[in-house]
Simulated scan of single mutants.
Amino acid sequence: MKFLQSLRLNKKLLRELDYVTIIIAICIVTFGCVNIYSATHNSSTGNYYFEKQIASMLLSLIIVYFLLVFDYMVIENYAVIIYWAGIVLLIIGDVFGKVTNGANSWINIGPINIQPSEFAKIGMIIMLAKQLDEMEGKINNLENFVHLLFYAAVPMILIVIQPDMGMTMVSFFIVLGIFFCIGLDRKIIIGGITSILILVIGAWNSPIFQTYWKGRLTSFLHPEENASGSGLQLIQSKLAIGSGGIFGRGFGNGVQFNSVPENHTDFIFAVLAEEWGFIGALLLLLLYGILVYRLIQIAKGSKDIFGTVLCIGFISNLLFSIMQNIGMTVGLMPITGITLPFMSYGGSSLLTSFIALGLVLNVGMRRKKINF
């Protein structure tokens, strides 16, 4: 009985919960489920992806509740365990992972597929938040900065080895967002970005970058040059988005998106734009805008550095993922396997997005002392 009572949220804490943020997130997921259903229900899989996404959402909401029960400061005490558990998952994925689209980025456990990099990304943010909290935010101290770089580099190197370029980019921009917002000297940021560009150029001309990945990363520049190969996905996506016009073809009436590979995962935006048109795309962007704004407000109101960095890390992840995913569907960004947060099909992606959201909401709930 005492255990069950410990899992109840206090009414005073519930008053501090940002319900609007939760509702916005659920609206985006629901919109995603509708589009996943439209994209897949006429295929050989039937309602499989739709039903599985609904189940993932319900599981995610249950986990969010449990995350809200405990003070987020408790998580700081387990940051080391969470971080290294993510690293172990990445190593297992690198060695024994299932090859998907040229990368060892998935672990199969019976019928369950896990993407280790999604969970390692969460662990990295938590670890950086803990370290910066202990350093009192003094990031421009050389010893502190090198320390932080180590914890950021380990998971990123393991993700590069897979190689998962999309998740590598996401991780890089998470770290960049945290370092910039915490106050890292801009000269160091510019120097770091320059060094990374040099390394990328070197890696591009080495065996690390497979021909497959080079094709995917550059096909957005001239997709018509390989219209039946690496450029097919983007060409079909742009046709689907363009055919939607202002108001879209209507739910269930999309034709072009059926020819877009990965239309229920990485290219879900093409489905949305064709069926719901510019108005539907604008509605989604509005929902994302409200969500990001409210998360920023929570970050500003955090009572400590640990909570602030948690929020910054997850906001950076959300912003870059949205920009990269939508950008690649319209030909403005290279094609990578980055899902559209809360919209795309994928249990690991949806679960970790809600875990991140739960942690940020936890920070907001406990931004001030509650007298019991």
Results as ranks from 00 to 15, higher is better:
K11N: 09
I28H: 03
G32T: 03
I36G: 06
Y37A: 07
A39S: 09
N42W: 07
Y48V: 09
E51G: 15
K52N: 12
Q53A: 07
I54A: 04
M57T: 10
L58Y: 13
I63A: 04
V69H: 12
D71E: 14
V74H: 15
I75N: 05
E76G: 15
V80H: 11
I87V: 10
I87Y: 04
G93P: 10
V95A: 09
G97C: 09
S105W: 00
D133L: 06
D133W: 03
E134T: 12
Y151V: 13
P163M: 08
M167W: 03
V170P: 05
I174E: 00
I178D: 01
G183L: 07
L184M: 08
D185I: 05
I189K: 03
I190H: 06
T194K: 08
N205D: 10
I208D: 03
W213T: 05
K214D: 02
S219T: 14
F220N: 03
H222N: 15
P223V: 06
E225H: 09
E225F: 07
N226M: 11
S230L: 14
G231L: 10
L232H: 12
L232T: 10
Q233H: 11
G244S: 04
N253C: 06
F257S: 07
N263P: 12
H264T: 10
E274V: 12
W276Q: 14
I279S: 04
L291I: 08
R294V: 05
G301E: 10
S302H: 02
D304S: 02
T308Y: 11
G313M: 09
I315F: 07
L319N: 01
Q324H: 09
Q324A: 12
T329Q: 09
T329W: 06
V330G: 09
I335C: 08
F342R: 06
S344K: 01
S349Q: 00
F354G: 10
L357M: 12
L361P: 01
